[in-house]
Design a protein around this nucleic acid. Sequence first.
RNA 1: GAGAGCGUAGCUCAGCUGGUAGAGCAACGGACUUUUAAUCCGUAGGUCCAGGGUUCGAUCCCCUGCGCUCUCACCA
Length: 514
Amino acid sequence: MSDNEHKNDNPNKNNKKNKNKKKIDRFEKERLKKLEVIEELGHDPWGQRFDDHMKIAQARELAPAENGETGQDVRIAGRIMNRRKAGKLRFYDLKDWSGRIQLLFSRGELPEEQWSLMGQLDMGDIIGIDGKLKRTDSGEISVFVEKLTILCKSLTQPPEKHHGLKDPEILVRQRYLDLIANDDVIPRMLNRTKIIDSIRQTLKGKDFHEVETPVLHAIAGGAAARPFLTHHNTLDMELFLRIAPELHLKRLMVGGIERVFEIGRVFRNEGVDTTHNPEFTMIEIYQAYGDYNSMMDLTEEIVCNAIDTISDTRVLPWGDQTVDFNSPWSRKTYTELFEEHAGCDMNDHEAVLKLAKELHFETDGVHHDVIVNEIFEEKVEDHLVGPVFVIDYPASLCPLTKRKKGCPEIAERFELFIQGMELANAYTELNDPRLQEELFETQLSGLSDEDSMAKMDTDFVKALKVGMPPAGGLGIGIDRLVMLLTNKTSIRDIIFFPLVRSEEGPNSKKSDKK
RNA sequence: GAGAGCGUAGCUCAGCUGGUAGAGCAACGGACUUUUAAUCCGUAGGUCCAGGGUUCGAUCCCCUGCGCUCUCACCA
């Protein structure tokens, strides 16, 4: 990337920047004045380590039950979210990552110096408090402040206290403001962490071992997607960001690691929308001596355990509907679902062609199974409210999957659908190196290179020749799982920093002036 | 990548076929010792996303660019 690409800012951006700078000054100036007073009073406006404080949620639990009782001494820390005045009393709302609590400063009870220090506080400042737990006349749990410690002066104006922050652009670009202003964001994102923790726990309890494999791939295999391209300078080597960890994990099974999984980021150079982010987190799990049936059981267990860590019930809300995750989940074959929703036998070529024409699909020179799959995606997937395992796919669509015994046109593959979303994908893994090599070479007519999962990887075939045990393999899209379990229809709500167009650096379109 | 919509004060939002802008909260000054979206009085705060065009005059109409949102396409 050349320098002039960066310097080539358009006038719009410069203006915006200048405008912002001018506007910020007005509020920043006021706060800088207070910062100076804080220093004059002998305090560090940027604070120091603050030991032995408790979570606000914990403090709330220790509060006395009745008005008039004096509770224990507590030390807490957090950010000022709101404040109210009533005569010589000041009420502040303090927030930490566990919750909120009210502070009460009383002119009559605080030393003069502390009262002046309090006068320099603004919304958004981070402070530490020592005080006593009590209730106010109206019964509100409060910390009656005895000592105020400045931990960090905030120089910017926080978002509106009642309506919060709504602008979807600011929410994502400045996620920290979203976290501060909207109280549901931290618990939701911590639920994401809990779900991932639970998955690890389930797997570790079954003797699966977590590993890390390369993100930089010479061949972007293991899935059908367009990769991101990058370059290694000293090796002068073209590299891809991985689109799936599959082929490396299988190499590990060749080497004798029998139960293995990886949770990691994969990258797909595709469109961005409410269910797709260019980088997303997936887990892939491989179990030697298993098959896709073992993976179905495992999927149910992983998801149900995850639900149990964040919910008391396995019937979860999804928009205005609910999803019942109670076991067992239904299992239906691709063939029967096709017949049920598309209305014809998927092996009846004439009927399939007719249907495809009605749907205005291109059929000339396109492989029968590719047409069938397009119809499946159009007519069937929306009906898969689930949870439902769709099993036994047309083999030609699955170049990494073992064929059903005695049934070479069917692959032992399942996909898990919930509310029409594809959540998991699993195979009985193909371990026949000769068939694998053949399938890598077979490009289905009508599929473009990048739409095909079959990318020749001779090193992988070499590995299979050494011998990989029969195995089940499973991939789960973590982001979508979190969306489903937390009732969020946009992937942007469960990824801290989803991709957004850069605000400053111009993209290549704008930089072709020179 | 295609189409539609949106961009007004720090934040949330009003703004009538076109006559250069308002509210609430926040800020600043003041009153008030149990408030909790506190209340009351006062003050200040704007390149109406950017550039160009039409017009006597543009936040408003037209064109271009940037960004966001939604729908569709590709994909998980």
